[in-house]
């Protein structure tokens, strides 16, 4: 290991963080969405513990409005690596009357995930949840710690965060609290894509340009799907698109693209003038949309 390039510095840091999680917590879990960031985390975890298996399960909080490609990919990855997968469904939280389905033009199940997630944390008594959030995604996230302590209600108190000095991560918590861990905090979108390219990591096909039925609204490209509310006058078009970020279908907009392989995706990201979350419909709700959701326990 004498290579000290930029990606390697970030990779070494992430591996260090994942090992701290395994050492400091009793019941960690890796939150797996099927998106590129959580797929990258799985690769980093493989590296951190080789030749032992990854010492924690994956958990998917399933909105039920997934891209089918993502679910196929998830199941194959878990099978190939012999990992344990826990799935908890937003639909169940709706059926139990804990959350209410949003209605109308901008309805999405994205924010409903919080309740399902908090219930699952309680059910399995997870004390650390590893996630693929990055500080460059959004300005409230720019202040997130690597070990971010949440109270009994899963809430984030941004005014009262633990200082993080040098490499030292303090994972001491009280019963009922849990820690959200962000091993790729310091990666940018381009770093993740460059890593996927360098490591030849497989990712779901929706990240590459493909023909899809879409419609246009508010300058964004929406998927034409039974899960996405569409006005009658919003015309369905067939276009070459790809996704830069994968949430559920109702909150993820596509970009026009002809990048059909990883090399051209990396080139496209380098030249891009729109940020990744620019295509997240959930962030457009207000200037402080992300900060509000985080305080309520969103990832």
């Amino acid at each position: 290991m004498t290579d000290t390039s930029h990606i390697n510095a970030l990779e070494n840091e992430a591996i260090y963080i994942l090992r701290e999680v395994a050492a400091q917590f009793e019941r960690p879990v890796l939150l797996f969405s099927g998106g590129k960031d959580s797929i990258t985390l799985v690769r980093l975890a493989q590296k951190a513990f080789w030749p032992a298996k990854i010492p924690f399960p994956l958990m998917h909080i399933d909105t039920g409005h997934n891209f089918p490609e993502t679910i196929e990919f998830r199941d194959k990855l878990v099978k190939d690596l012999g990992l344990e997968l826990i799935v908890r469904k937003v639909q169940d939280s709706i059926d139990q009357g804990k959350v209410k389905e949003e209605t109308g033009r901008y309805s999405s199940r994205n924010s409903l995930q919080t309740t399902t997630l908090l219930d699952a944390i309680e059910e399995f008594k997870f004390d650390a949840c590893i996630g693929g959030a990055r500080r460059d995604e959004e300005k409230a996230r720019a202040k997130e710690r690597i070990f971010s302590v949440r109270d009994d209600f899963g809430q984030w108190d941004e005014r009262n965060q633990r200082p993080e000095l040098f490499d030292m991560l303090n994972g001491q918590i009280e019963l009922g609290q849990n820690v959200r861990v962000f091993p790729i905090s310091n990666w940018t979108e381009l770093d993740v894509w460059s890593y996927i390219k360098e490591e030849q990591i497989e990712i779901p096909s929706i990240y590459f340009a493909h023909k899809r039925k879409v419609f246009l609204r508010d300058g964004l490209i929406w998927s034409h799907s039974e899960y996405v509310y569409q006005e009658e006058d919003e015309e369905v078009l067939e276009r070459m698109v790809r996704f830069r970020t994968v949430g559920d279908m109702s909150c993820t907009a596509a970009v026009f693209s002809n990048a059909t392989d990883i090399e051209s995706v990396v080139e496209e990201i380098k030249d891009s003038t729109i940020s990744e979350r620019g295509a997240r419909i959930d962030d457009k709700r207000s200037e402080a949309a992300m900060e509000k959701r985080k305080q309520q326990g969103y990832f």
């Binding site: 290991m1 000290t4 510095a9 990779e11 260090y16 493989q46 590296k47």
Partner: peptide, 14 residues
């Protein structure tokens, strides 16, 4: 480092 053997471990490598 992962499944590969190296002769030297650099500063700050995991």
């Amino acid at each position: 480092f992962y499944d590969k053997k190296y002769q030297t471990a650099a500063r700050r490598s995991s």
